[in-house]
Design a binder for these strands. Sequence first.
RNA 1: GGUCCCGUGGUGCAGUUUGGAGUGCACGCCGGCCUGUCAAGCCGGAGGUCGCGGGUUCAAAUCCCGUCGGGACCGCCA
Length: 591
Amino acid sequence: MTEILSTGPAVGLRTHWCGELRASDIGATVSLCGWVENRREHGEQLAFIDLRDRTGITQCVVAKAHDLRSEYVLRITGTVQARFEGATNDKLDTGEIELQDCTVEVLSTSEPAPFPIHERTEVDETIRLRHRYLDLRRARLQKNLQVRTIVNAAIRRTFIDNGFVEVETPMLIASTPEGARDFVVPSRLHPGSFYALPQSPQLYKQLCMVGGVDRYFQIARCLRDEDLRADRQFEFTQLDMECSFVGQEEVLDFVTQSVRAAVSDITGEDIGDVPRMTWEEAMERYGSDKPDTRFGMELVELTEVFADTEANVFKAPCVKGIRLEGGAELTRKQIDGLVDRAKLWGAKGLAWMRVVAGERQAPALEGGVAKFLSETESAATITALDAAPGDMVFLVADERPVARHVLGLLRVDLGKPPMDEGSLEFLWVTDFPMFDDELGPDGRPQAMHHPFTMPNAEDLEAGLIESDPTKVRSVAYDLVCNGWELGSGSVRIHRSDVQQRVFDALGIAQEEAQEKFGFLLDAFRFGPPPHAGFAYGIDRLVALLAGETNIREVIAFPKTQKGADPLTDAPSELEPRVLEELGLRVLPRLD
RNA sequence: GGUCCCGUGGUGCAGUUUGGAGUGCACGCCGGCCUGUCAAGCCGGAGGUCGCGGGUUCAAAUCCCGUCGGGACCGCCA
């Protein structure tokens, strides 16, 4: 358990920390405080206590330790002495010394812990969460909380140094119908009315821009009532920023600076300039708007190859493929599993072929749908995919979005390295579409980011919003790392004529816009500056930097996948009188 | 809403394929021995609703159905 933060002064009941003493301290009389990590008895005269605090472990020599059990809290006062020759322990930072002539004070006792505090065995996560206060004693979480502290500090330092002002925005806000499902809070003073908890401080930070704050940032708690995942909790923390009189380039630079500082403070490495890719390119090459660029297996365009095909399975607007190196070994059962999964993901089917050595050892396709391909198609497929004997190739023929999506998921499924493997590959994905490629139930386009996102200037000029809205690009950008979406942002609309055109495209009438975002539109009547911003998930960034594949490991008190807290048993029912005061009645369950 | 995996003393696992007595391993816990250990060692002991319910069977941890809990993912997450 090595401290990565500076420990600060040892004051109060302690004169030193348990990980601190070295040979240079020999002779000093010191007091240490901590928990009993381990006890080794050697009869009536001699015993060893390993005393642990968050900085490490010190061995203390005592005469009798029979009543000093695991996890008892002790204050031990003694003299620092060199260990006997051959009795040093190079696994401990304090292994050259030990405490002798010890006086032990029992500050509190402990029942046996429900799971080992040492980390030689994995423990079921539910049990860890039920006793999170014990889990927090373990080195892993101690380290992760410290990584988090350092990351927060690096971010704060970067933005403050760049003239940003930290503004706290409300947690109890008006519900807006767009976006994720809101968590709602009933109002006691206005029975029947509700606050929402913020999905993000989006509207408030734009109000700050109108307010002349000019450069805003906040380490903000955000809440979204959507299904939980390894990288998603109900409650999460974002670095939220917004900046006036700048565009995309300046925002990307500020954000990169902050991430660069955070990474550097943890790993010592410089991420340098973050490469960029347009959304269109990401979708074409990786089938994802958050591509994991740590590995290849890129999607290959085959539409032209099958332009005039006789094979019905390939008669589609788009044909794309990927190659799995060495994949020819897959069993029929494994392949069937992949085909089933592709169908669950929305494909009509998944075509597969083994690459074998044909005439004169040239690669040839065999099995699966190979018999339906013409010689030309077969040769062109092999060339395009750069396939070699022993490989397997997978093809999807479908609408372009489906082919990209399914192969993108298949690529990750077959090739993704563990989240904590290799280096961090940051990537900016730019030029997101303004609207979803599918029209909404009302036949209108749907905003992909949010309705205040600035459309691409050329597309705006060309009138694409009115003529072909799904082709309109926006000035919106995401930051991606190792296949995780870290965050997103955009240049915002500050001109009412542009805003009107977007609302028109979305089919949002004047009254509706006023009802949904009236306060923002009102504010924008009073001189809104051009502005742009960004927000990224600190939980995710910290997880990446801590080598964790799950953000629960960097959150002190997280919830389970069903949104429960095994420690407090939240969520829980309310007393009837509480409901009454709030003007609420709970309906019987519909089963 | 859906797909998949997991659930066995306090903890981690094996046992489930092919039904045959709660069987085993490691750690922990309790007691004893032990003056240099450090994942101490040795001896002894306690500790079980095999998640829960139902079914099949002479017999279920094991097979079937349901359900609860945990996890990964798809949908969802402007």
